[in-house]
């Protein structure tokens, strides 16, 4: 990340990061809308759709797998991560930039990068909590099992979060203010959720669409979660796609992001 014409000063200061993280967490908890969309909505959708639609609880004749077993909970986790990435992160960062919060920080010994780091950590924690609650309540209410290959699942989750969050940073870098961030975030999020199988599960996608979806961050994320949930190692293709998106989006965000 760079300022307009002066590189950020980063001084090792654990107590400042802790304080900033604490403050950002408080602010997050005081803003019920963000907490609702990342934590409550995906969970509610899981439980409502899973209980209300009987077909979601019918085993697939070919695989024996029910929609509520893997597809529905993993898609809701993707929704939670995407909401944090494309709604929460860009709007908070763009608002902070627009209102000079980042500029104000850059004249203290603490770099505004600390605030950015705190936001990413906070959203990572939120997404992880959403994932945990989704897995837990899916298990308790819908009888779905937790991911069968937990280590692979954690890896898929971390890489998916990295890819989507860095894309969220690109949105934050490109929009002029907090209000524009909401619209631009949605514009990026909904097509990606489509390729991730939110409306049309990847298993039902036509071949061409499925190939394309493999190379989108959400398609790769969804499939890697699905595979590890079912107990298999994710395909190297999907992990590689997530790493590639993280690198490309990260490089772009680092070049384009402005503190003011």
């Amino acid at each position: 990340m760079t300022t307009t014409d002066s590189p950020a000063v980063t001084r090792h200061r654990p107590s400042a990061l802790r304080k900033v993280l604490l403050a950002e967490t408080r602010l997050f908890l005081r803003d019920p809308a963000t907490a609702f969309f990342t934590l409550v909505l995906p969970l509610a959708l899981l439980l409502i759709l899973g209980s209300a639609i009987p077909a979601f609880r019918q085993p697939d004749p070919a695989t024996g797998e029910r929609v509520v077993d893997i597809h529905l909970p993993s898609t809701m986790i993707m929704l939670a991560v995407a909401t944090a990435a494309f709604s929460a992160i860009p709007s908070v960062l763009a608002t902070y930039r627009e209102r000079g919060v980042l500029r104000r920080l850059s004249v203290t010994p603490v770099s505004p990068a600390t605030l950015l780091g705190a936001q990413l950590l906070l959203n990572l924690a939120t997404a992880a909590l959403a994932a945990f609650l989704t897995i837990l309540s899916g298990h308790l209410v819908l009888g779905s099992l937790p991911p069968a290959a937990p280590a692979w699942f954690v890896l898929a989750f971390v890489l998916g979060v990295s890819a989507l969050f860095t894309l969220g940073l690109c949105v934050a870098a490109l929009v002029p203010n907090g209000r524009a961030a909401g619209g631009a975030g949605a514009l990026a999020m909904f097509p990606l959720l489509f390729f991730g199988g939110l409306w049309l599960p990847r298993q039902l996608m036509p071949e061409v669409l499925l190939r394309f979806s493999d190379f989108t961050p959400t398609g790769a994320f969804a499939q890697a979660m699905h595979d590890s949930w079912a107990g298999q190692a994710p395909q190297p293709l999907h992990l590689g796609v997530l790493v590639a998106w993280t690198l490309v989006a990260g490089a772009f965000a680092a070049r384009a992001f402005r503190w003011e």
Binding site: S15, A16, A23
Partner: peptide, 23 residues
């Protein structure tokens, strides 16, 4: 600085406590 503000929901005491921790 001119035209710099703080997050809307940050409280006065929290802002000072936070900035004090930077020094």
């Amino acid at each position: 600085l001119q035209d710099c503000s703080l997050p809307d929901r940050l409280r006065v005491g929290e802002a000072l406590d936070l900035y004090a921790s930077f020094y």
